[in-house]
Every structure is written in structure tokens, then in C-alpha cells.
Write a protein that binds this DNA or RNA. Structure first.
Lengths: 220, 220
DNA sequence: CGATGGCTTGAGATGTTTCAACCCACGTGG
DNA sequence: CCACGTGGGTTGAAACATCTCAAGCCATCG
């Protein structure tokens, strides 16, 4: 990641990255209320994070895939404030946060990288707020699919085919709609020839139409 | 803020804090797309931050008051991705970000403080997502009022009286509802004897009822 | 004092949810 | 290897909350 390091430096960096942890599908990587010690970098697998209320409502706050960082929520209070659940068997790097802080004092590149990661998460959440506050069901699902496929593509997967690792209910929770509405909207897209859906397999037939939906032009 | 500093240290810290900037009501502190150079700490005044879409939709992402930090969105891309607009005449401390990064390498307490600030923002946004994704109009407004009054109280203001610095439309944008719905919900609370509203002056008569609304007990 | 922006309220339209029934795919165990 | 059970997904119809459009009111300020 950063540059211009000698071998001692590399050893120190290695120290922070060499703890691994396996998480089985359905298991929690960390849970709401748990003491915060580490950030987690996903090596393989797929996660959801969600917050809950006392009366049992659940809001999925994000879906995370390989290369993404989880656990930032825990820094502020030394306790996690959400649950991280593996949607498929996963392997993560455990990054003890105090080590990260120590190291990033010596490596400005690492320091800046951490700041960027947190800032990116803040900006991502702004986008979700826009989606939840302003968009209708079709726009939400279009935005969701485009975002997913774009992130998968950046990891070498297809630009047009994807396998959903989450249920309709989880998609709905993330997008602020009920699972039935998610299902109906998938069907609508399918009828319109925009996508092909068969359960969790989705093939995007008309990316342009999705983009249009997500980002409608102002009517001049 | 941090502890155990000699006078040279204090001078260095002072350097980063002694730039002030006045912002008049209605003016932008920074705008979407603008180059990112600094964070801003509010000394006095009240701001909103909002993101916009090409087709002109606007989502208020937060309201900020004295003591709070703005501009974290700019770190990831070196450009701001939202607008910060003063809702009343304001004074901010300009905190050049590169100075902050340099300083926080020498002051672990400052470093950790910055991490906490970013983490706090992430957690706050989780809460907003929960609100936007799961709650109904009354719950949203109750949550909003309770949050505002709590933050004001922490700054020495009343626990029960507040003056809204934002319009119904801005509240609505933040809470994902139309201004008419905001207005109606205020009226409903007023009819129910929970609050007293006269334009922007709000007096909370029954905090308990608001809490109940926001956080309904599971029906046993 | 009039203009303006912000706020309130009503009535009808709309999109999403709710409730219900049904279907399908998958995995397990007989 | 098939049968069955189960969780997930689909679809329909009615209920509901919020939005839209419209009119009118109020406070503020030049």
C-alpha cells in the first residue's frame, strides 16, 4: 500500500495484518455493544452491517465485500454500535486499532489512508441518505444494482451479471422498503426488459435504462 | 483539549486554530466540488449540510451547531461532496487539514480525537439511515426534536424550549418528508399536547411522550 | 403598508405496505 | 433417490401513509 519502506518498516506493517479470522455464513464478526478492539479488512466473503432498535426493527447500513473495511463505528465509544454478519463464509484480516494508530503516526501514507477510508464511509452514507430520503422504489433498486455491479466489476467480475448474496428482505431493509416491494420492483424491471432475474441471479440487460432511472434527467 | 503539553506544543496547536472565518446567514462555507483544504469547527452559528443530484433534488445530511466539525466529506477525494450553508450568521475556526495530520502524528490524543470525530459522524449517519428507512413521520419528527434539544441542552440551553433555525422544508429534507407533512405533524403534536409550536419557537411539554413515539416499546 | 417567504390546512391522488395465498428451489433424511 | 419440509420469493387486492396541488394565512422587513 504505502511506498518507500525498508524491511523493518514492512515487518511492523506485517504485524498488524497477519491476524486472520474465519467467519462462517450467518455468524457475527462483531455485535452491537461488544468492546471495540480492531478494524476488519475483508479478504474473501460478503457481509452486511445493521443497526437495531429496542423494539426489534433492523436497518441494514451496508453490504461489504472483499477489500472493504468494517468496524469504524466502534472507534467513537470503544464499543461497536452495529452488527456485522457474514452472508457467506468469509475470511477477514483483524487490524488491532491501537496498532494502527501507532503505526499511522510513523507512516503518513497510512495515516492519510485511514482518514480517507473514514471519509469515504461518510460520503457513502450521504448517498444512502439521499436515496432513502428522496428516491422512489425503482430508483432505489436501480441505484443499488448499479452500485453493486460497479463494485464487483472493480474486483474483476462481470459488468452485467451478479449473484445477490442477500435476501429480498435484506435488500429491502437497506433500501427502506418491504421485501414485497423489492420483489415487485425486480419483476417490473424484468418485464421492462431491463434485467433478467432468477432468484438471486441477476443479469443486467440495459445498464443505460438503470442509470436513467437512478439519475433521471431534469425535464427541460 | 489534549493534556500534558509544553508551551511550544501549545503554540503549534494554536497555529492550527487561530484562523477564523465569518459566514453570513445564507452563505456557503464550502460547496460541492470545491477543493478540500480544511475542516471547520463551528464557534457560533448554525449550519446545514446537503447533497444534491443533477436533477435538482436536495438531501439535507445534517444540521451542525457550535462545537461540531464540518468538512469530513472532503478528505476522501480532496474535494467537498456537499454544501455547507449557514442558517444564521456564524463564526468558524478554519483547521487546515494537512496541519492537522502533521500535528496528530505528534499528539496521539489529537490523533485519537480526530478518529473519534469521524467515527461519531459515521454512527450518527447510521441513526439517520434507521430513521429514514424504518420510521414513520411522527417518529422521525420526535427523534429530530429530541436530538436537537439534547444537543442544545449540552450547550447550556433549555431542555424544553428551542428555536428552530431551519425551515419546514429543510426539516423535511433531512427527515425524508415533504414540508406539508412536517407541518401537519407539528400540528398533530400540538393538538396532542406534546409540544407548543409557534412558527419556529417550540416548547416541549411532554418529553416522555416524544420518547415513547420515537422509541415505542415492543408490544408484549 | 404592501410584498414576500414561510407556514398551515384541506381534499384527492399516488406509491408503498399489509395481509394472504401460493410457488419454487434447495437440502435433509428416510 | 425421492419426498417432504422450510425458507425465500412472487403476486394480488385492499388499506394506509404520505404526497401533491391548491388556497389561504401570518410574520417579517424593506
Amino acid at each position: 500500500m504505502p511506498v518507500g519502506l525498508n524491511s523493518t518498516d514492512l515487518d511492523r506493517l506485517d504485524e498488524v495484518v497477519n491476524i486472520r479470522r474465519k467467519v462462517k455464513r450467518g455468524d457475527l464478526l462483531f455485535r452491537n455493544g461488544e468492546a471495540f478492539t480492531s478494524l476488519y479488512a475483508i479478504k474473501t466473503g460478503f457481509f452486511k452491517t445493521c443497526v437495531t432498535t429496542e423494539d426489534g426493527r433492523e436497518q441494514v447500513t451496508g453490504f461489504q465485500m472483499a477489500g472493504e473495511i468494517m468496524g469504524l463505528d466502534g472507534i467513537v465509544s470503544d464499543h461497536h454500535s452495529c452488527n456485522a454478519i457474514a452472508l457467506e463464509d468469509a475470511l477477514v484480516c483483524v487490524l488491532p486499532f491501537s496498532h494502527l494508530e501507532t503505526l499511522s503516526r510513523d507512516f503518513p501514507a497510512l495515516q492519510h489512508h485511514m482518514h480517507k477510508i473514514m471519509s469515504r464511509e461518510i460520503v457513502r452514507e450521504h448517498g444512502v441518505m439521499l436515496l432513502l430520503g428522496n428516491m422512489r422504489a425503482e430508483e432505489r433498486l436501480a441505484a443499488f444494482l448499479l452500485n453493486l455491479v460497479q463494485r464487483l466489476h472493480a474486483r474483476g467480475f462481470s459488468q452485467s451479471e451478479l449473484v445477490l448474496r442477500m435476501t429480498r428482505e435484506e435488500i429491502g431493509s437497506y433500501l427502506g422498503m418491504k421485501l414485497e416491494t423489492v420483489s415487485r420492483t425486480f419483476s417490473k424491471f424484468s418485464e421492462d426488459g431491463i434485467i433478467d432475474v432468477k432468484q438471486r441471479d441477476v443479469r443486467i440487460l440495459d445498464t443505460n435504462a438503470l442509470t436513467q432511472l437512478y439519475n433521471p434527467q431534469p425535464c427541460n
